[in-house]
Write a protein that binds this DNA or RNA. Structure first.
Lengths: 218, 218
DNA sequence: CGATAGATTGAGAGTTTTCAACCGATGTGG
DNA sequence: CCACATCGGTTGAAAACTCTCAATCTATCG
């Protein structure tokens, strides 16, 4: 179990640009459930999240969805494909009504070539996303659902406290079915580790939650 | 099931450097099973694989190992932590006797700052590794063992044809136990999709193998 | 207040692991 | 070059875990 609490890495791209560059960028509004781009599309630019929450989702051949990453306010997405010169490997969907700022590839390329430190910034983000992805893989391969759900809860609620997470989203993030998430949350509530408020979830002590996850991993 | 056959991405870093830079680099020899660096260590440089195979392994709290990535001849490793300024999130171990060229962080930093296109190259590698990691996560979450083992076999044997893969390594790469890999390989052999030669595995037709995986995913 | 999306619960099924025993290949020292 | 030690592979039976399917309940919102 990775006990690190470093969930709030600085991922902002827009703050790296100067006013001149930002001025003529367009804001896009998307509604909950709306798709921004599809898995397989060719990239056209990078998106900065002004407000709301965007999910990066991949579809397995059998139709199952997996929630790979989530982008909240001041995060950006679409950079992976742009950098690697590949089609998008996953779909982005608004988890709630959101506002985005679109940075066309041409602008992005200009900026990146003119300012190596911005490229370095993007590379750092990729490196951290890679760490997180591989840690998620390790947990999925070695931990039981309960432990994974606790991990997911802690991460998700810390980094994106404003988003109202559904059981389905939590499950798709950590590799569990909605019903399983429901059952586990029920047990965690009985143990006093979480509190349900309507459909919402409150975590009184994230440390205690982690202790529980540690026990589960022997 | 991702049917793409693009397993041979160009990951070489050394070829990006000029002779002057390469000249004073040191070659390191490591024996099978030897550890190059540990999860949690602070990074000191990047390693280029001259020959042999290096595994990036992460240990779960219960001791289970997961094989995250493999680096064969002309690949490099250790770059993720160097770029993100983090301690190594996993351990590297020689899967067989290998020779490495060590590029100290100072050299790496100089090169990266002097030549933005090398930084871009590293960023591209990170972006592709991220795609692969997230696809592995999706498969682990949504596919059955047989399908995952086929995927792993196809990838592993295509990209690293020279390495003698053990059941344990295959399992740790795709999230399966050694015994399960053994059972699945037995079935695949009966179906004529693979051939066992001693402890080795030969794949007569990678396409047929993929067809089998497709069926499994409905 | 009714409609709807989301959450819960139970019983049964299925997949993969676990544990344990045994087999076979590989390679090394005498 | 053989004998044997060791590492890796195979197989079976039972257990564990998570999922599936189906029914029911309850927030939330127009």
């Amino acid at each position: 179990m990775n006990m690190s609490f470093e969930f709030s890495e600085k991922y902002d791209l827009l703050s790296q640009l100067d006013d001149e560059q930002i001025k003529h960028l367009v804001t896009v509004k998307v509604k909950k459930g709306e798709i921004i781009y599809h898995q397989g599309d060719a990239p056209t630019g990078v998106y900065h999240v002004k407000n709301g929450h965007i999910g990066l989702i991949t579809f397995a051949p059998n139709g199952n969805e997996t929630l790979l990453r989530v982008f909240g306010p001041n995060y950006f997405f679409g950079h992976r494909s742009l950098i690697s010169n590949e089609d998008y490997h996953a779909t982005t969907m608004a988890l709630v009504d959101s506002e985005l700022i679109f940075i066309p590839s041409s602008d992005f390329d200009n900026i990146v070539h003119a300012k190596p430190n911005i490229l370095m910034h993007v590379a750092q983000v990729l490196a951290k996303e890679l760490r997180r992805a591989e840690n998620k893989f390790r947990d999925l391969a070695n931990s039981n659902v309960t432990s994974r759900i606790i991990q997911a809860l802690a991460f998700i609620k810390t980094r994106y406290p404003d988003h109202k997470w559904t059981r389905k989203e939590i499950g798709e993030y950590c590799g569990a079915k909605t019903e399983t998430v429901s059952r586990v949350l029920g047990r965690l509530e009985k143990e006093g580790l979480i509190v349900k408020e309507g459909r919402g979830i409150v975590i009184p002590s994230i440390e205690k939650l982690y202790e529980r996850a540690e026990e589960l991993d022997e």
